[in-house]
Amino acid sequence: MSVILYARVSTADQTLAHQQTQAEAAGFKLDRVVADEGVSGISVPLRERPEGRRLFDILRRGDVLVVRWVDRLGRNYADVTDTIREFMRRGVVVKTVINGMTFDGATTDPVQMAVRDALIAFMAATAQAQSEATKEAQRAGIAHAKTIGGATKYRGRKPGFAREQFNHVRELLAQGAGASEIAKLTGVTRQTVYRIKDHPAEQMKALEAWGL
């Protein structure tokens, strides 16, 4: 039996190390850590993430999958519930660090099964609801910022990279370099590399908005 932590961070404000520290502090003896950096839990299903895909290959019957909370698996209700149920069908036990939840497909008692499935649905729905509430708050903040000063133009967050770095990242991506290698060569974070890779037009627009 292996105990595997899956960690995911989508912004520079989060850290993978913090999720591992929390899991170990909660008493989990981890055999392996699988992590995705700079990946959205809203728009990218677990199976489509670079390291998320590996979970479906390496998890075996009897293994324990540890996540900080179900929102690390995703923030889409259907994706999260399908993912947890798929792992349970394979004989994998899913445990959360927060609240100490355990989802075990070996449960046969009808009442326990009903409670388990209800908890999965509730937690997945909560993860999506929190995500949507956050997006709504962001939209409201942007709308408010646009109205301040009348004609004041909202420029969004200032990019953490220069145009030269942007161009260098694009060149290295075109050459097939990996995110870690590019980050070291250009001096930007891996999250920034992923943003430039996935949304180059948006990142260029941000540079132009700030005159960079």
Rank of each mutant, 00 (worst) to 15 (best):
I148P: 07
Q112Y: 07
E136H: 08
I42C: 04
E48I: 00
D104T: 13
A17W: 01
L30C: 01
A78E: 12
D109M: 14
E51T: 10
A118L: 13
V115I: 15
R53Q: 09
E136G: 06
A133V: 01
H144M: 07
T107E: 15
D36Y: 11
Q22S: 07
R72E: 07
G149D: 08
F103R: 11
T96L: 04
G41N: 02
R53D: 04
V92A: 09
T126E: 15
A125H: 09
G27M: 03
A114Q: 15
E24H: 04
L73C: 05
S40L: 04
A23V: 06
G100C: 13
V64I: 10
G100K: 14
L46N: 03
D57C: 05
R89I: 04
E136P: 13
G74H: 11
L65I: 05
M123R: 14
A143N: 03
A125P: 14
T15E: 02
G27K: 01
A151W: 00
A25C: 00
V80Y: 05
T152S: 12
D79E: 14
Q138I: 05
D79W: 11
A12V: 01
D63T: 04
R139N: 07
A12F: 00
G150H: 02
I42A: 10
A118R: 08
M101H: 12
Q20K: 11
T107L: 15
R75T: 03
T96Q: 08
R139Y: 01
T126P: 05
V97C: 11
I142A: 11
